[in-house]
């Protein structure tokens, strides 16, 4: 943390903005030059238990694993999910999420003998796919249903997936090591050959 960030945290403490769960909701007066602000996912949270953190990390990494490029854990996605659940989800969504997570905590060891995070990768994948199959009727999966607000009654597995994918591709690691990012392109060329394995550009506008 550099001096500027330290001062900003101090300002947050002094202002009493920590009354919000995370203290991230800045007033206009506190709004800083965002490009030099601390990363969103660096905020602190103690919303999940130690065990819940392990499960969420394992779910996120199973969704977006490390391959020849970093995966969800290296991109900070588990902590992003914790921040979002604590501060961004509304009460209804948070209750659904918490119930889903509690179910993971109790049901998986009953059915498989171990906590989700301790299972083999293949077992984890089967569990996630089974959960997804059970949720398949949800409008969350409807083709083209992407330019919309968060679906408040979406199944738990969909919430985890949406937050994982969002958190990953908008993180610094995801946007610049898996996608491509250039904040100052300096020119526009609309017709370049696309190599078969080339990644997309990280988007600069965000839908929903």
């Amino acid at each position: 943390m550099n001096r500027r960030e330290l001062l900003q945290c101090a300002a947050l403490l002094v202002s009493g903005a920590t009354a919000s769960k995370l203290g991230f909701a800045l007033t206009d007066e506190q709004l800083v030059y965002l490009a030099t602000a601390p990363d969103y996912a660096r905020a602190k949270s103690d919303f999940f238990s130690h065990q819940q953190r392990k499960i969420i990390a394992a779910m996120a990494e199973a969704t977006i694993p490390a391959t020849d490029t970093p995966g969800a854990i290296e991109a900070g996605v588990p902590h992003f999910i914790e921040l979002m659940v604590a501060d961004w989800l509304n009460d209804q969504e948070r209750a659904l999420f918490s119930a889903g997570l509690a179910d993971m905590e109790t049901r998986i060891p009953q059915d498989h003998g171990k906590s989700f995070d301790l299972l083999e990768a293949q077992q984890q994948l089967v569990i996630l796919e089974t959960m997804e199959a059970a949720a398949a009727d949800s409008p969350w999966y409807s083709q083209g249903n992407i330019r919309r607000p968060f679906i408040s009654d979406a199944p738990f597995i969909c919430m985890v997936k949406e937050l994982t994918i969002w958190g990953f591709f908008t993180s610094e690691v995801g946007a610049s090591q898996v996608l491509r990012t250039n904040m100052m392109p300096m020119r526009f060329d609309g017709n370049l050959p696309l190599a078969p394995d080339e990644s997309a550009w990280a988007p600069y506008m965000f839908i929903s």
């Binding site: 909701a25 969103y40 996912a41 961004w88 969002w166 965000f206």
Partner: peptide
């Protein structure tokens, strides 16, 4: 204040402040 801020600097990494 938001010029050239990458997504990981934005509140909720770009999700709206509902």
């Amino acid at each position: 204040l938001g010029e050239h801020a990458p997504s990981w600097k934005l509140p909720y990494q770009g999700k709206p402040e509902r």
